[in-house]
Design a protein around this nucleic acid. Structure first.
Lengths: 235, 235
DNA sequence: GTACGATTCAAACGATCGTTTGAACTCGAG
DNA sequence: CTCGAGTTCAAACGATCGTTTGAATCGTAC
């Protein structure tokens, strides 16, 4: 059992994980070959299958390495908030800030490695491949349930169904922002770059937007089906 | 020049485009091989390179076939709104609804083919590959500029920089919702499915959320840099 | 030193990828 | 009919993929 490692020169396993994390972020899962990963990590090609079994298991390990602690911290943050509130409903801003701030702390990880993972995470939410879809729900189920319950308590006038919708939109805005896909920025060439790379600045702008959407007036008829006349002729 | 086609039995070119559209949506660009596409379309493998030149050009054609008319309609909708407003600022809800309703109309295209494309479009915003990033800005530049100007006029108290941020978040929520990545739904197993497949229902829920975020109070200090004390010791 | 499990290595495996080739087929014009 | 441009077809191309193999190497216990 080697103990005095991973500090100056990470061992093969972590070198592979670090290289894979960056390359997956830059090019996606399918477009990143094991040869690119091992070349960047400075290890032999066969090391991936030796240490992880397969590329798919490598992908899962890349996620679980960071996602476990991240979501555990999110739960701990919510625990602390609810403990200090003593049964009273929390402020929606507090709740969302707790969720986001854990990501911010990860983004400030040494050597900016956390930032790469956050962008990879945002990208993964839109990945159609079955790889991610298999274990992402397991990783997020507890967090979503707890934060959803806290928000439901904070916003008693919002029906459960509507809250699920708004959580969906919130996740979309967060994932897209973390993913840093930049389509809008590329389209407009608006210079957000300096702030966009500062996670605290992102949260400062994102938080009011999310709370505004979360506390917005409810849609007109929440329960209408298409049983009546279809559309009212708008032109 | 054959004229009487594409009605009962689409020609090879459109059969390929239709098949590619669905498969790209289901599995992404990299994971979809030309052999899957041609097999689904019922055409020969070489037909893709004969009609489109390369897989990359096929991808571009899949997008431009629908994106051109879609964004043209978005511009036309805004033209009509601004004409009837006669110089007065529009309502933010009107503006966003105009943007979204064009997509709704596409989604109700015959044979639900438009729905497949919208989900593909939402997915493409998160694609890291260079394919999409090259021409998506060109397709969206005019639309974003016009709608951004209309929103700036409608929300004179929102600084330009903040408006760009909020447009970014809005695009994220829309793209994620259109993409239908379902991670949240999978995580919670909340039965949104029936409504989620009805584009008008999606807009009915999405619109108040987006307007709420767009008109939310501005973040505390809009211009702060990290010049002062970094953080206030939270524990 | 020797022996042995853990790890690394160069090399190759079969499969699949996007693309190309050249012949066969279609069909209206002459 | 013949012709030829447009299109479709089966087959193969070279490249790259994830994975496997078996020997070489390392580090440690005896």
């Amino acid at each position: 059992m080697n103990r005095i490692d991973t500090q100056l020169a990470p061992d093969t396993k972590e070198r592979i994980l670090d290289a894979a994390e960056v390359l997956f972020m830059e090019q996606g899962f399918e477009a990143t070959s094991l040869r690119m990963i091992t070349a960047r990590a400075g290890v032999n090609l066969a090391a991936v299958n030796y240490h992880f079994g397969s590329k798919e298991d490598l992908i899962k390990t890349v996620f679980s390495r960071r996602l476990g602690p991240l979501n555990a911290e999110r739960l701990a943050m919510l625990d602390r908030l609810e403990a200090s509130a003593r049964g009273r409903p929390l402020d929606p801003t507090q709740i969302l800030e707790a969720f986001l701030s854990a990501g911010v702390r990860l983004a400030r990880d040494p050597a900016r490695r956390g930032g790469a993972f956050l962008r990879l995470l945002g990208r993964a939410f839109a990945e159609p491949s079955g790889y991610v879809r298999e274990f992402m729900p397991d990783q997020y189920e507890a967090v979503v349930a707890r934060y959803k319950a806290a928000l439901a308590k904070a916003l008693p006038h919002v029906p459960d169904r509507e809250l699920v919708w708004r959580l969906h939109f919130i996740f979309g805005a967060i994932a897209y922002t973390l993913g840093g896909t930049d389509v809008l920025k590329l389209a407009c060439r608006y210079p957000l770059e300096d702030e966009a790379n500062n996670p605290e600045a992102v949260v400062r702008h994102l938080l009011p937007f999310l709370v505004g959407g979360l506390t917005a007036p409810l849609p007109d008829a929440s329960g209408v089906r298409k049983s009546r006349s279809a559309r009212s002729k708008q032109g």
